[in-house]
């Protein structure tokens, strides 16, 4: 019998990190339209872990959730092709991407509704490197949380053992479900979506919920953080090629970094 009915995996759409983001000529906005969106790489890792738990029979169902505009649907189709059983697209065009508190509140509501006892999320979105939403979700749910997991073991009695990596080294922690865990790069190597998996994903259930319908009592608060300016980081000056180690040593010296 499964140890846990349902894992929720929140998936954040992010611009493909292989394509550098630019600022518009007037310096006001980020040019993102030409860059395709992908599931945040850490979320793909969290999803892979969830799918492996389901494949091992420890979990019955994996539900992927995204809060985003129209493009969220494509991201969730990818998640379904990568093994999620079902997806929930909370649709919102509201530009509150900077407001982690609001995102976390909405996602926590979904977790409650789905009566899930385990959330596996990414350790951070590679767009803003924030890493705040999952922890805020755990606080909303009043669940214990462990970040930066590099190994997750789910035991029959509902105990979860997690190995995590920090600046101080490695530690093994344990908690009991319900729990929220965030995935570090080392947790696993996500699979690629096979063609049959992509075909199958088209028939998997993808529910669209409008944010306003989901939380009718809720009037969206103005975000507490607003972006007021963006600029490209000044490029480093073009460097020079050296042909040998002794030339390298000379140039270092000329730069005042001398050996």
């Amino acid at each position: 019998m499964a140890i846990c009915d349902r894992i929720v995996v929140p998936i954040k759409p992010v611009p493909d990190p292989e394509h550098p983001v630019r600022v518009s000529a007037d310096g006001d906005t980020l040019l993102l339209d030409h860059i395709s969106l992908v599931p945040n790489p850490f979320d793909a890792i969290a999803l892979e872990e969830a799918v492996q738990l389901r494949e091992s029979g420890k979990v019955s169902e994996v539900v992927a959730v995204t809060l985003y505009g129209d493009a969220g649907e494509g991201i969730l189709r990818t998640a379904l092709a990568l093994g999620a059983d079902r997806a929930i697209h909370i649709h919102s065009d509201d530009p509150f991407s900077e407001d982690a508190l609001t995102i976390a509140e909405v996602l926590a509501t979904v977790v409650k509704k789905e009566s899930s006892a385990l959330v596996l999320a990414g350790k951070q979105g590679v767009d803003h490197d924030r890493g705040a939403v999952p922890i805020m979700m755990a606080v909303h749910l009043d669940w214990p949380h462990i970040t930066l997991a590099s190994r997750v073991s789910l035991h029959a009695d509902g105990r979860v053992e997690v190995v995590r990596d920090t600046e101080l080294g490695t530690e093994t922690l344990a908690l009991t479900l319900p729990a929220l865990i965030t995935a570090e790069l080392r947790l696993n190597e996500p699979r690629y979506a096979s063609l049959p998996a992509i075909m199958k994903a088209k028939r998997k259930p993808l529910e669209r919920v409008d944010l306003a319908d989901m939380l009718p009592e809720r009037s969206i608060r103005p975000p507490r953080i607003q972006r007021v300016a963006v600029r490209e980081r000044p490029a480093r000056p073009v460097g020079e090629r050296v042909a040998s180690v002794s030339e390298l040593a000379d140039r270092l010296k000329a730069h005042g970094l001398g050996v």
């Binding site: 767009d127 103005p222 507490r224």
Partner: peptide, 21 residues
Amino acid sequence: NTFIRPVHAGVIQETVRVSQR
């Protein structure tokens, strides 16, 4: 209330302003 932070792998720097409730 105004801070600069790197985003998009440090390629972009954004200025954000916070307002409390």
